[in-house]
Simulated assay, not measured.
Amino acid sequence: MPAARILTIEDDDTTAAEIVRDLAARGFEVERTGDGAEGLRLASTGRYDVITLDRMLPGVDGLTIASTLKDKGIDTPILMISALNDVDERVRGLRAGGDDYLTKPFVLDEMAARIEVLLRRRRADADRLLLRYADLELDLVAHAARRGGRDLRLFPKEVKLLEMFMRNSEQILTRSMIFETVWGYSFDPGTNLIDVHIRALRKKLEAPGLPLLLHTVRGVGYRLGAEA
């Protein structure tokens, strides 16, 4: 597994040097800037696994950086670091977009432990958004699916259908369950919406030489799984 990438935005050279040295010794890849505007530019690339963010910075302060990243949809976990330790300041930091808050002075072991917690949480979130079954993969962030190394071009409703099947693989899903989950309202026995979408999805999942994954259970519903 590649080393986690940490962006440290800290204007105090002594504190920054200690953070960078400690994290590098623990095997992290660390990049540091002491300027708020440059920190925001780097953080906006989304290429980091965790950001350590000083609350008080020249130019653009930590709260502005956190809230701007949140507005942009950048979900990199943020550990806010500040000498301001009263409850109101911690609340402001977390509401602005921080995921955790550490007050100065701090112990480097505690900082590293908090970063590791944020990394575990991020990996768990990524696992929930990348679904796999057999040779089938669904990326819920990119709305992209692949089977056997082949890209599948799915429409939005097909993505929602496939997500439901993959989260409930090997289980029989009734037409009523599918309709209410994917379309969001009570099942209408007279509609053929499910049949049309299932047929289209199954056609995209199938390929010569690959086993059938999406099965019809007559009189009941559908199941994603191996042949019964």
Rank of each mutant, 00 (worst) to 15 (best):
E170N: 14
R120Y: 09
I65D: 00
A113L: 08
I74C: 11
G59W: 01
L154W: 10
L213T: 07
D13W: 01
L94V: 09
V217N: 00
G148W: 04
G97I: 07
L210F: 00
I51F: 13
A3T: 12
L84M: 12
N85V: 10
V196Y: 01
L210Q: 09
F165T: 10
D61M: 00
E38Y: 01
R123W: 10
L138N: 08
T33C: 06
F165Y: 07
E116C: 09
E31N: 01
H215N: 04
A24T: 15
P208G: 03
R114K: 14
I9A: 09
T174D: 04
E89I: 06
R122Q: 14
G46M: 14
I115K: 07
E227M: 06
A37K: 05
Y133E: 11
L84Y: 12
G46L: 13
M56Y: 01
A24S: 15
W183Q: 00
D99E: 12
R223Y: 04
R90S: 13
D49G: 10
Y185S: 14
L69H: 11
A17S: 15
A24H: 05
Y101I: 06
Y48A: 11
V217A: 03
V220F: 02
R55K: 00
V217I: 13
L118F: 08
D49N: 13
A3R: 12
P2L: 09
R147L: 09
R150D: 15
W183E: 02
A24D: 15
E116L: 13
P189T: 15
Y222M: 08
